[in-house]
């Protein structure tokens, strides 16, 4: 991607300002938090001090069992569930619009299903599949699937109609039209869908772990709640936020690489 040098510097400066502003806001937040705890505006057993929270985070950070039994377990469920959702969405999306008959008969159900909170199906899936990895993967994938499939479909329909007329004028095959026009046009939408999906996958994995998993951050939340370990809960939330942000940054990084040509890539999101 060719970038004008002046424009590049301007963008860099713009980013630096963003980082400074966000950092400044964080400092304000922590100061306010410190103030609330030192003035005991909220009882200490409900809101731990920043120091106590930092200590809990540090304790988890340096505990190999936290990594192996909790964080990596959740990450594993998130990644597998997300991968299933992404592949399924990328395969099923195009199939749904392959023929107007399929689209008109099946798509209304996709939309109807999409409006239902998939999380509510988690207990049912546990009954069907039992405790274990499979049910966690399925719950996660189910939550993450819809933003992918809906955006794949929206993306494949996007683009200038005349691009396709041009391909028809060249008597291009279905496959050529797909690979040269429809899929590239769909990429900004697909990445927007994957971005939502990866965040949804974290939610799905945590809920699956809430419902009786021996390990993972979701189960750790339940254990620490039972023990009224409030700093510990804050620590888990912190790690979940880091996990979500990292995954989001990876997807947006890939999106920027593959859809640099799209000026409105960030706006292209169909309904979740």
């Amino acid at each position: 991607m060719p970038t004008d040098r002046a424009q590049f510097r301007e963008e860099l400066l713009d980013r630096a300002v963003s980082v400074l502003l966000a950092g400044g806001f964080l400092v304000v937040l922590i100061l306010a938090w410190q103030l609330i705890t030192t003035l005991e505006l909220l009882p200490a057993y409900l809101v731990p001090t920043p120091a106590a929270t930092a200590h809990a985070i540090w304790k988890d950070l340096t505990d190999p069992r936290f990594w192996n039994d909790q964080l990596f377990q959740t990450l594993y469920v998130v990644l597998v569930g997300f991968a299933i959702a992404a592949v399924a969405g990328l395969v099923i999306g195009p199939l749904l619009i392959l023929h107007p008959l399929i689209e008109r008969s099946v798509y209304p159900f996709v939309v109807a299903f999409q409006t239902m909170p998939k999380i509510a199906m988690a207990p049912l899936i546990l009954v069907w599949l039992g405790y274990g990895h499979t049910s966690k993967f399925v719950i996660t994938a189910l939550v993450a699937f819809f933003p992918v499939v809906v955006n794949v479909i929206a993306g494949l329909k996007a683009g200038d109609e005349r691009q396709l007329i041009l391909m028809r004028a060249l008597r291009a095959s279905w496959w050529t039209r797909m690979t040269k026009v429809r899929i590239p046009n769909a990429l900004p939408y697909i990445f927007a869908g994957l971005d939502i999906a990866v965040v949804f996958a974290v939610i799905g994995a945590i809920v699956a772990e809430f419902l009786g998993s021996p390990n993972g951050l979701g189960s750790l939340v339940i254990i620490r709640q039972t023990n009224v370990d409030i700093p510990g809960l804050f620590s888990v939330l912190f790690f979940l936020a880091v996990m979500g942000s990292t995954l989001h940054l990876i997807i947006t990084g890939l999106a920027r690489k593959f859809t640099f040509w799209s000026q409105t890539a960030d706006n292209k999101v169909a309904k979740r």
């Binding site: 200038d160 005349r162 691009q163 007329i165 041009l166 004028a169 060249l170 008597r171 040269k180 026009v181 590239p184 990429l187 859809t259 040509w261 799209s262």
Partner: peptide
């Protein structure tokens, strides 16, 4: 007419932005 025999130009360029 065969694809090899003609070219088309529209009101806008309709280039592929990627």
């Amino acid at each position: 007419i065969r694809a090899e025999e003609f070219g088309m130009v529209f009101q806008d360029a309709v280039l592929f932005p990627w």
